[in-house]
């Protein structure tokens, strides 16, 4: 594909002063009249009339201002017609390129970018990527946008960096602390011309929210460390424990969980957390026993609902907070333990037979009670009697068959222990199993009593105003037989109903009585009724242990002297997890690499230009080494992964070609660019190479002026068959790393093997320039072998005068990961000696490409030494070109000997 760059015009300005911009001519005009015609976009296609031609002279003029953003280039189709309108020549194409001017500012895709990042994120963590476009020519400095953070709020210290090329905003360090600042606002400027002062700029805003992580350890705040509670009581709010946590409120990072480390083995306590206030309430859910334990130490710990962040995981240590709990004694009196007792009575047991004893237990003294007296409570058929002091239970009489039938074979009564001092009563249940058989039917001996016959007591103990407190009374009725009435309170003698049979009348009345009395008695049976009513019906509780408890809910005894929690964990005021030193010397210090390119399309053309991809080699501050520590490593990695920007290289050489096209013929422009990019980053799969030549349209003879190495490469590029280089060093790698430098001026290895592609992931750029030379050209300067092993080195120096032969040094590259071609052309410098002034780094560990091109030309400002930085740590492309022209005024350390 032939690409012609023939003419150019500049957008946005009047180019007519340059008319005619081109002219066409046919030799047919020598013997006949020729009419020249042009057509195409900008002529007879919109935009019309940009170009016009003088049909007779063939001069082409530009008539209008053009806009590159509308029409980047024009193709003018040129024809030569005879008087009959027939083509005399094969049409030619004239390409007119519209040179870009920087007339478009960058445009951000959004005015405000929003992002978020977790606090404590590692340095160099990607936060967000900004995007901006520039309508100017792609791959041109006018559209090359450099991003820069120009403002940060809060501005305490710069926390973010931006990649000036990609717009990636990353964390500068790992110190982001949501507890300090929950959000940052950045003002970012994007400037074209790579951020140059002459560029156009636009700004945008970035809001970065800092997300919370659980990087704060909670601690408890106790109003007191000593509390007390009465035994046998429950408490739903014994103590309020406030938890302090600096993490985001109401999040799991903030919500606390208080737990018992020790002291709650009996599960007496519970802690209920209020997730709105982060206050824990200590509750007593199981009564404590003073006699068993009058003092205990609760040990509490606290953590968050969420796991701790890894940044503080190691800092968290379980810290116990102690609470001293005093159990207050309560006079409990005596109880029957167990609450019921069972005896066996048979027909052989007679009157006053001692069937057992049932002693109340003094809970306060923890021994049999000595302060109570005992009385019978419910005593069906008046079967039993109890000794008021010893609690010995005896039979009143021998059990009769009637009693046996009434009781149904099983007696269940109650006894009461009465503590007159405490005014407390406790009830115990007596169960007697009447063993079947042998019961006599004789009428029992009835002692005079308040009840008649076999009446029974119904809850029949009047406690004379003693507090019975909340117990459940037992009310039992036994139906009398054989005309014996039953009653309590209302008693109807049976003899008033003589007209009925005694049994029938008794049953009838009993039925009514039962129906009438039951609701009444139930109403009177007010459990826990108000004490003090001496005549009231006060049932006696029949709880299992016979005790009458008063479960009060009491508040904790607040200690006015609030003790500080001595076990509060140490919370760092600032995140002391400093893992690396970071230079915070500025926000805009994040450039991972820099490129500079002279805009050769403009009016100010220079003969020297510098291209740096990845690591900028010297002088400027915009180097990857700006940051030590992690940031630096990351930056370097980024540099390393940058790869070769093919678009940029393409643009570079296109512009270079264009520049040469406009220059005097005195400088033949034989440029050869051979690019191997074998599966490298961004490389099109299978790409082999690219070779650019600048030369006369029909003259490829300039290839002959190339050095053998470049000619070989050019041949490869053109698809010509080339002979492989002989394997000059089959025992690769060499034992010695000394470079092998053939004598100067020796012929290159004829027909050597072609430049075998380097290994995958490598990039090779070979550049060559030839320039006219005059007499006295210095012999090529030997260059130290830049490679120890594993690479291909082509070192060539020659002049286009043809009098000097280049020296070529080729390594076997079978093990190569690099290809370095260094070529120098020393112009007509008399007495120049560059020995010692050129330094080449050792590239044995790198995977880099260095193209060094120098032209010695007159200059009065030669550097003292020409140094190529050591690119071992990068994998980039460096193209350095200098122009040094012969001068008599060379100063400094550059000594040029004949």
């Amino acid at each position: 594909e032939w690409i012609k760059f023939a003419a150019a015009c500049r957008e946005g300005e009047d180019n007519s002063k340059r008319n005619p911009i081109a002219k066409i001519h046919s030799d047919c005009a020598a013997n006949q009249q020729v009419t020249y015609r042009i057509s195409g976009v900008g002529i007879d296609q919109p935009p019309y009339g940009i170009f016009v031609i003088n049909q007779k002279t063939g001069e082409i003029n530009i008539t209008s201002i053009v806009d590159r953003e509308v029409t980047p280039f024009f193709i003018i189709y040129c024809r030569a017609l005879n008087s009959l309108g027939q083509d005399l020549e094969k049409p030619l194409e004239l390409r007119v390129r519209v040179l870009d001017i920087n007339d478009n500012p960058p445009v951000f895709s959004m005015s405000t970018f929003v992002g978020e990042i977790e606090e404590n994120s590692n340095a160099n963590t990607l936060v967000m990527v900004l995007n901006a476009t520039d309508a100017d020519e792609p791959n041109n400095l006018n559209s090359k946008i450099a991003f820069k953070i120009i403002r940060q709020e809060p501005s305490d210290s710069p926390m973010f960096i931006i990649n000036r090329y990609t717009g990636e905003i990353r964390t500068m360090n790992n110190f982001l602390d949501r507890e300090q600042y929950g959000q940052y606002s950045l003002a970012v400027r994007g400037s074209d011309r790579d951020g140059g002062a002459d560029g156009m700029s636009a700004e945008c805003e970035c809001n970065i929210k800092i997300l919370d992580v659980n990087d704060n350890i909670p601690y408890m705040e106790l109003p007191t460390q000593s509390i007390s509670i009465e035994e046998n009581s429950l408490n739903s709010n014994l103590l309020q424990i406030r938890v302090i946590d600096l993490d985001e409120e109401f999040s799991a990072n903030w919500m606390a969980v208080i737990f018992f480390i020790s002291g709650n083995e009996g599960n007496w306590f519970e802690i209920e957390m209020n997730e709105r206030t982060n206050v824990g309430t200590l509750k007593v859910v199981k009564p404590l026993d003073f006699e068993a334990m009058n003092n205990l130490q609760l040990s509490l710990g606290v953590r968050n609902k969420a796991e701790f962040h890894q940044s503080i995981m190691s800092q968290y240590k379980l810290t116990a907070t102690a609470i001293s709990v005093t159990v207050l004694n309560v006079v409990e009196g005596s109880v029957f333990r167990p609450g019921s007792k069972t005896f066996v009575v048979n027909s052989n047991m007679g009157q006053n037979y001692k069937i057992g004893e049932y002693v109340a237990w003094d809970l306060d003294a923890n021994r049999p009670s000595t302060t109570v007296r005992y009385v019978m409570g419910r005593n069906p058929t008046d079967l039993l009697a109890i000794d008021s002091k010893t609690a010995i239970i005896t039979l009143r009489n021998k059990v009769t068959m009637e009693q046996y039938k009434i009781l149904g074979g099983k007696y269940q009564g109650t006894i009461l222990s009465i503590d007159d001092a405490l005014q407390r009563t406790c009830t115990g249940t007596i169960v007697i199993n009447l063993e079947n058989g042998g019961w006599k039917t004789e009428r029992p001996n009835v002692n005079g009593s308040t009840t008649s016959a076999y009446g029974l007591t119904s809850g029949g103990v009047t406690t004379n105003g003693y507090t019975t407190g909340g117990g459940v009374g037992t009310v039992t009725f036994a139906v009398g037989t054989n005309g014996y009435g039953v009653g309590t309170g209302v008693y109807q003698p049976l003899r008033d109903n003589v007209h009925f049979g005694p049994a029938g009348i008794g049953l009838l009345i009993m039925g009514f009585l039962v129906l009438g009395l039951v609701p009444f008695l139930l109403m009177c049976c007010d459990c826990g009724g108000a004490p003090g009513g001496g005549a009231a019906f006060e049932p006696v509780p029949e709880c299992s242990d016979g005790a009458i408890h008063s479960w009060a809910v009491e508040g904790a005894q607040a200690d006015p002297g609030v003790l500080a929690n001595s076990a509060v964990p140490c919370i760092p005021v600032t995140n002391a997890n400093v893992i690396e030193y970071v230079d915070n010397s500025g926000v805009y210090t994040n450039e991972y690499g820099a490129r500079e390119m002279q805009d050769l399309g403009g009016g100010e053309r220079t003969t020297g230009f510098e291209l740096t991809d990845g690591v900028k080699m010297s002088g400027g501050p915009e180097i990857c080494q700006e940051y030590p520590g992690t940031l630096r490593r990351n930056s370097m990695r980024e540099c390393r992964e940058g790869g070769l920007n093919m678009n940029f290289m393409e643009s570079y050489f296109c512009q270079k070609a264009y520049a040469y096209a406009d220059e005097d013929e005195g400088r033949p422009s034989n440029d050869c660019l051979l690019i191997y990019d074998i599966e490298g980053a961004g490389s099109p799969a299978g790409s082999v190479g690219c070779c650019s030549f600048i030369g006369e349209d029909l003259d490829d003879s300039f290839l002959d002026t190339l050095g053998p190495k470049f000619k070989k490469l050019a041949d490869i590029s053109l698809g010509k068959d080339v002979e492989p280089f002989p394997d000059s060093d089959p025992s690769w790698p060499p034992k010695s790393t000394e470079p092998v430098c053939p004598p100067q001026g020796t012929e290159p290895t004829g027909g050597g093997h072609p430049p075998i592609s380097p290994r995958f992931g490598t990039t090779t750029v070979i550049s060559e320039n030839t320039y006219p030379s005059g007499p006295g050209v210095q012999h090529p300067t030997p260059i130290p072998d830049p490679l120890g092993y594993g690479n291909v080195t082509v070192t060539e120096s020659y002049t286009s005068s043809g009098t000097l032969k280049p020296s070529v040094h080729i390594h076997d590259n079978r093990h190569a990961s690099n290809v370095v071609v260094t070529e120098r052309v020393v112009g007509p410098i008399s007495g120049a000696d560059l020995q010692g002034m050129l330094e080449m780094p050792d590239l044995r560990d790198g995977s880099n490409v260095i193209v060094t091109e120098r032209v010695i030309a007159p200059s009065s400002s030669l550097p003292t030494t020409l140094t190529i930085p050591d690119p071992r740590q990068s994998s980039n492309v460096v193209v350095t070109e200098r122009v040094i022209q012969p001068t008599s005024g060379i100063v400094g350390n550059l000594s040029m000997h004949p």
Binding site: A80, A661, G695
Partner: peptide, 26 residues
């Protein structure tokens, strides 16, 4: 022969120079 020449704007002495088309082979 049928050729195109383009004008060189960079001549320093104001003279007009014409260049035949150059080409770049890719």
């Amino acid at each position: 022969d049928f050729r195109i020449q383009v004008r060189d704007y960079n001549t320093k002495n104001g003279t007009i120079k014409w260049h035949s088309l150059r080409r770049q082979k890719r």
